[in-house]
Each structure stands twice: as C-alpha cells, then as structure tokens.
Nucleic acid binder design. Structure first.
Lengths: 213, 213
DNA sequence: ATGACACCGATTGTTCAACAATGATAGTCG
DNA sequence: CGACTATCATTGTTGAACAATCGGTGTCAT
C-alpha cells in the first residue's frame, strides 16, 4: 500500500490532537505499528515528522511519547502568538478572504456554545485564530501557528475543563471581529493583545490548579 | 553504529547549508545512502526531518531535492522576519545575554569584511539576526528563525554574489547595535524595519537579475 | 515527421527479519 | 537498605526484497 506515509502522518496527527492518545502516553513502535497496520520503519518516518512539529517528544533509545506541554511551553506558545497574531490583525485587510473564515468560526462558536458542545467550541476558537494568522498571507507563519496551535490543544487536553477554557472567548471573538471591521486593524490588534493575555492567564491558572489539586 | 541519525541529520543539514549540494540538486536515496555509509531507511528518516524544516523538498515517488527558494519564498521569509525580528528587538533588554552574541557577530562581520571572507561575513550576519531573535527568549520563535535562515542561505547560494549580498550590512549591523544600546529597543526596531526592507530588496534584485541574464 | 501509445528501467515506497546497543527492571549481594 | 549486576524489552540500524510509480524510449499509424 504505497503512499501510506503521508496519510499515516496525518492520521496519527489527528488522533493525537483528538486526544485518542493522552499527552505523555508512550507510543511503542512495535505495538502501534501493528495496530496501524504499517511497518516499524514507516511508522518511524511518521514519528520524525510529528516530532519536528512538536506533537510528540522523541528521546533517544527511550522512544516517543505524546507531548505534554508544561507551563513553560504554554508561556512560550502565548509569547509566539502575541508576536504573530496582533501584527497580522493590525496589517490585515477587511477584504481579505480570511475574514469570511473568521466570521464562520465566530458563528460556529456561537452555535456550539448554545449546544454546550465544548469540543467544537474549542475547534471554532482555534479556527478563528487560524484565520487571523491567515490574514498575513504567509505560509511560514501559518505553519508556525498550525504547530503551536496543535501543541496548545494538547495542553487543553491535559486540563480537561473545556467549558472554562473555551466558552469565555466566544463572545470575545465576536467582539474582536466587529472591532476589526468597524474600527480597523490596529484597534483590533490592541484588543487582541489583551485577549491573549487573558487567555494565557486562564490556561495557566487551570494548569497550576491542576498541580495543586 | 546507533544514534547515527541525529548526527546524520545534522551533518546533512550542514552540508546542504554549506552549499555542498546546490539548490535543486536531486538527492538519490541509494547513492547518497551509500556515500554516507548509512542505510536507505535511516537516510529516509533524516530526509523527513529536513523536509519538515524546509531544507529539502519531497515530491512523492520522485524523491527529494535540495530546496531552491524562489521569489515567493524570499518574499515570505522576509515577511516572517519583519514580524519577528523588530518586535524582538523592541522588547529586548540591553542586559540580555544575547546582546553579547550580537556584539560578537558584529565584530566577526567587521574582521571578515576586512579579510574579504564573504562566506564568514554572511555567517556573522545571520548570527547577528539570530541573536536578535534570541532576545525574545522564545524557543519556538528561535526555531522558526533557524529554519527560515537556513532557507535564506539556500537563496543566497543560488545568487552566488556574496559580496553584494552581505558586505553592505556589516556597517548596518554595527549601527543597529549602537542604536539599540544608546536609544533603546523601539528606536532600534524602527531602524531594523528599514534594514529588512533594504535587505529584501537587495536579494530580490539579485534574483530578478539572475532570471533576466 | 509527428503524435499517441505501450513498454521498460530506474527510483521511490514499504515490508520483513535480523542484530546491535541502550535503558529500565528486577534480583542479588554486601 | 543501598549498590551492583544480569536480564530483558525496546529502540536503532541494516540489508534484501518486492510493489508501485514516474520518466523516457521506441514503436506504430497517420
């Protein structure tokens, strides 16, 4: 079955992001290869890709495990986000196609919030920010964001309180979109700065609460 | 010979960056594996890592070749740089350890300029900007910069006029460092914006000159 | 001569089995 | 009870093999 590997990498990626393998889980080459119906070598190639993306951690001679981001990782992820997202929003055009994606993400978030479908709320949230980055029209920045967004999802999985994590930001997304359209990029960028600070604080708070009981 | 792969990846990476394999060169699995004294499978794992880093391009069933960045890539690389570098400089502290690295890079650039050692001038140049990014204390931003800097080196290799490419920026690096120390981060950030615009223009100019004769 | 078509060869994609090397574990001894 | 050692499961790496695909070559009909 040639070409299994691209598919394999994506499949593994999705399953990890979806939480099928909890953060920190050890991924055994032999058993996982058997489970997925591929050879060890093919699986190892996929591992290398995912490790480079930060989704799994590879320790020589000790195998790979699903990344489990710690406080330092969350801090760094938000730092990177603050570098990229507000600037993308500040320079973004309201006519950019990504604006439609922003709107759709906001609406999906709102309907999912009503349905109390927190998982989808989280997905919509990420899609919203992904659209913001897309405003920059930079494949490399998009790739960076794709990777750190995936890592952040792992952090969310560790916390496992999706309502507190995602719900508060649905209305903020709506407000941010309207600020962007009504008052322009720079105003929206300033708002997003505060937004990200608050979001980081929310995540970090949940994290330390985890550690202390 | 276990643990060959991390070493292998780094070795290949360095050889590519050093121009041993010209941009666009097809890398045959069989012959390269033989040349490097590793098996095809091990080499393929290294390929996956380097492809993820953007150093080589992988086309299914057609193998990998050394990336040869085009105009669009250069534009995107500089876009990403403008997002990250000035902000890092603006927020950076003069007391940060990376400042020492900035200084060393400037001095190395100056001595290499005198010696007309353009290769080292280019290296020092990149080290200077690497130190700027290090001001942000963000592993993920550093990784992004490491990858795009490597890609940019490939673009430089394609142009192959290192003097025009690197020499003009030695004095600018010195000036930028002094602005940062004397007038602070924001002033230096503004200067760096212009710097990067000029640098991009230099590279793009050389590129189009290549295409037209 | 030219264009479509079928074939062939080289290369990549993937698997399997084997062995070396390492890290963790468990058991032993002082 | 702690340090040492032997064992063992797992990873690291290899080589050979076969399947699948791509690109070029040559043929053939028009």
């Amino acid at each position: 079955m040639p070409d299994a590997e691209d598919t394999l990498t994506n499949a593994l990626r999705r399953r990890i992001i979806d939480g099928e393998f909890a953060p920190g889980t050890r991924l055994s080459e032999i058993s996982l290869a058997e489970k997925l119906g591929v050879s060890r070598n093919t699986l190892r190639e996929a591992f290398r890709v995912l490790a480079e993306q930060g989704l799994i951690e590879h320790i020589p001679h000790r195998g790979v495990s699903v990344a489990s981001p710690g406080v330092a990782d969350v801090v760094d992820i938000y730092r990177a986000r603050r570098y990229v997202e507000p600037a993308a929003l500040a320079a973004g055009s309201p006519l950019h196609p990504a604006v439609a994606a922003m709107r759709e993400a906001v609406e999906l978030g709102e309907t999912s919030l009503e349905a109390r479908d927190w998982r989808t709320v989280g997905t919509a949230n990420m899609a919203f920010h992904d659209a913001i980055v897309a405003l920059a029209d930079s494949p490399r920045l998009e790739r960076l964001f794709r990777d750190i967004a995936a890592e952040l999802r792992l952090a969310f999985l560790e916390i496992d309180n999706p309502e507190a994590l995602h719900a508060p930001f649905v209305t903020r997304n709506r407000a941010l979109l309207e600020t962007f359209l009504d008052q322009g990029g720079p105003a929206a960028a300033a708002e997003l700065q505060d937004y990200l600070v608050l979001s980081e604080r929310t995540v970090l708070g949940a994290f330390t609460r985890l550690r202390h009981g």
